[in-house]
Every structure is written in C-alpha cells, then in structure tokens.
C-alpha cells in the first residue's frame, strides 16, 4: 500500500530529491536533504547567501554529481543517465543564470535563435517567427539587433529568459533573478515569471533570497540553511510559523538565532588584551 502511494507520489512530482548529500572539500553543502517540486507551480528555494542554492540547481541539471542520494527529474535519475539521455532531458529544462550568460559574440536575435538552430532543422523564416514571439513575450522585440554588451542587467536577464524558453521547456529554473535589479526591472521580472508560469504551464523553480518578491509569486517555499531544510510551506504558512529562525529570515531581522556578530571572544576582554601589536 505504501509502495503504491509512493508510486503515485513519484508520478505527481516534477522533481523529487531524496536523502541528497553533497560536499565540496570538507564542507557539507547539503546534508541528507529531501524535497519535491510540483508541476505547473512556482517553487521557491530560499536561504541565506552561501547555502548552495545555485549548487542545487546545478545538481538538478546534472552538471554536478551528489555524494549520495537520488535526484529524479521527470522520473529519471539524473545522475545515472548517459550523456545523450541527459542532453535530451536538458532540452526540457530552461535555466536562467544569474549573470544572464548570453553568448557575447552574437546579437540578441542570434542568442535566442541559437538553441533552435542547433536542435531543429526548421527553416530560417520559421525560426524568425519563433524568436520574435519569444522576444515579444519578454517585451524586447525591439532590441533584437543589439549586442549583449549594449543591454542593461535587467534586459539581459529578460533576453536570457526568452532564450531559456526557446525550446519550449517543461520546467524553468531561475537562479537569483531579482538580485541587483532596480525597482522597475524587479517589478517586470516578478510579473514575467508569474505570467510565463501561468500561460505556458511551466514548472518553475526560483532560487532567491529576496523574501518579499519571491513570497509574492511562489506557490511553495523551501527554506534551506546549513545544508538542511529549515522550513517549508506556502508563503502564508511560513509567515505564521513558530520557528525563530524562519521568522528572522522572513522578516529580515538583524539579530536572532543567526547572530549579528561573527563568532568572537568577548568584546571587553578583546579590547583590553595586551596582544595588540604596537
């Protein structure tokens, strides 16, 4: 009965991570972590800087290998796939990099046409239609002839979003989409992620530490801290949870379970000590 339940559950999840451990050097980035990502929803993965949120995306995409645990995407164990199967799976994934990662020697138009040209045999006229549609969806149809170096940060991210959508993926991963954006670009990006998720029936994963923006669009949030899931739930559930740490993170308080001070000896003894080099 339990097995049967598990099977249904597996079929229902887009990504299912079980007991995943990953370490870099001696540091454990993820310690026995388990989480699920549902189809057609926006799932946010949040946590302080340096908790390996980007690493998680790279693990999902199969660019990194975990030490132990399983990671199923679309019911396939990503790290047991052959190279060709992995590449086939990646065509169903779109990824938006923090920097945009546009190819600098191509124009905006060619950047978006690039994956289509590589993976399909479509005639150039049809590629043009597709590219212009994707660009129109992010509102940058007029910028098609610009080079990536001529774009602002927010525009580059929108072009990268159009490129991530070029192959009509089933899921899309956003790596820190809100970091370092002015309020207008921020509003545009928030609206775009929400709209694209609804209209294209995408499964979206948003990795971020911008609480307000992320909470406003996410259907489900995982909070990750020190390699473990520190809290999970819908934004409303998290706001009302009792955990001090979750409250500190969600409200952005300066002091709490995460201390304001980096671990150090007592200030009085530190200042009065005679070790100062004169």
């Amino acid at each position: 009965m339990l097995l049967f339940y598990n099977l249904i559950f597996l079929c229902y999840t887009m990504i299912s991570i079980r007991n995943l451990t990953f370490s870099r050097g001696n540091r454990k980035i993820f310690d026995n972590i388990s989480l699920d990502i549902m189809p057609h929803k926006i799932t946010a993965i949040m946590g302080p800087s340096g908790t390996g949120k980007t690493t998680l995306l790279k693990l999902i995409a199969g660019q990194l290998r975990p030490d132990s645990g399983t990671l199923l995407v679309d019911q396939k164990n990503v790290h047991q796939l052959s190279r060709t199967e992995l590449y086939k799976l990646r065509k169903k994934m779109g990824m938006l990099f923090q920097s945009g990662a546009l190819l600098t020697d191509m124009s905006v138009y060619d950047n978006i046409a690039f994956p289509i040209r590589e993976h399909t045999q479509l005639p150039e006229s049809m590629i043009r239609t597709l590219v212009l549609m994707k660009l129109n969806a992010v509102g940058l149809r007029g910028a098609r002839d610009l080079m990536p170096s001529e774009l602002s940060g927010g525009m580059a991210r929108r072009v990268a979003m159009a490129r991530a959508l070029a192959l009509d993926p089933e899921m899309i991963m956003f790596d820190e989409p809100f970091t370092g954006q002015d309020p207008i670009s921020l509003g545009v990006l928030v609206k775009l992620i929400k709209k694209l998720n609804q209209t294209l029936h995408l499964s979206s994963i948003v990795v971020s530490h911008n609480v307000v923006e992320t909470a406003s669009i996410a259907d489900y949030i995982y909070l990750i801290s020190e390699g473990k899931v520190a809290g999970q739930g819908t934004p409303e559930e998290l706001n009302t949870t009792k955990s001090d740490w979750v409250q500190q993170f969600m409200q952005g308080k300066a002091d709490g379970p995460v201390p304001f001070h980096y671990p150090a000896q007592d200030i009085n003894s530190d200042l009065l000590s005679n070790n100062a080099k004169l």
């Binding site: 990646r90 990662a101 994956p115 590589e118 990268a160």
Partner: peptide, 9 residues
Amino acid sequence: SAMEMMAID
C-alpha cells in the same frame, strides 16, 4: 554552463 544547459556541448 548555459550552453550545456541548452543541451549543446
């Protein structure tokens, strides 16, 4: 990395 994610080696 972006290319790898687009399934282009």
